[in-house]
Write a protein that binds this DNA or RNA. Structure first.
Lengths: 134, 134
DNA sequence: TGAACATATGAATTATTGTTCATATATAAA
DNA sequence: TTTATATATGAACAATAATTCATATGTTCA
């Protein structure tokens, strides 16, 4: 990204607004170019929504566990040292986000990953986290 | 609230706990195996922490914008249609997470991605989001 | 049928977080 | 110097969200 800021362009503050915007814009060209390139607000919102789902320790642990094996609620609660209720609540969130699916066998409900593709994201992030350590 | 261990009455229910655990475990082997394979709680917490940073629409938008070009606070505020204050606050969060860096030129502070590698994670998630649409 | 149990869920509680508002700081220009 | 501007930041507020508690649902088995 060889984006050199040309200082000669800086002094003139440019107003870009069409309607009732009162914000100062210093680099109109940059703003215009970036606006064209970035994903839509809707897409970015969905992305953030997915990140938010993954941004909870309990859910992250559940997903990693389910990547290793299908598990029932009870086992998950034991594995993570948490109450059955809290695990159930989080599984509900994960299911609504279509990240896990479940099947019922008698009293027991087994959960598994709905899409193991999510683990690729995890591993990418794991790599990023590990890079920071160096 | 009932946390009884019914080990004697239910042969298939296995007690794994060494100390003060009162949870029922149905599949001890699975739990043991998974426990060995998943990343440590510490690592998983760091991962969740990073996801949490990314799990906000404003921050996601900022990062995508900065991937396209270095930008100053004012331009970002204009681009995203948000107050300078809120952008500054979020840039602070992103900087503390080492996701962006900045440089000062006169009154203007330019922000850019600290590690463009983060975009790989974004694109992976973007793919996931788009898959859901089909 | 009724007791035991795995799971789900609504309500309450507590903690966290994003934005706004007001103001502080720093730099440049007049 | 004074004024204008770009950014940073603390406090307050509103909105979310994670966990616990109590209880409901549905299934198995005696």
């Amino acid at each position: 990204m060889k984006n050199k800021m040309i200082t000669e362009e800086r002094p003139e503050t440019v107003e870009l607004c069409e309607e009732t915007c009162d914000k100062t814009v210093i680099h109109a060209e940059v703003v215009t170019k970036v606006k064209e390139k970035i994903p839509s607000l809707e897409v970015l919102s969905e992305m953030a929504e997915l990140f938010k789902i993954l941004g909870d320790r309990t859910r992250t642990r559940i997903l990693y566990a389910l990547f290793e094996s299908e598990m029932c609620v009870c086992d998950l609660a034991y594995l993570l040292g948490m109450s059955q209720s809290s695990i159930s609540h989080q599984l509900r969130v994960l299911k609504q986000a279509k990240l896990v699916k479940n099947r019922k066998e008698g009293k027991v409900v087994y959960y598994s990953l709905a899409d193991s593709h999510i683990i690729q994201i995890f591993d990418q992030v794991l790599k990023h986290v590990n890079e920071d350590k160096i």
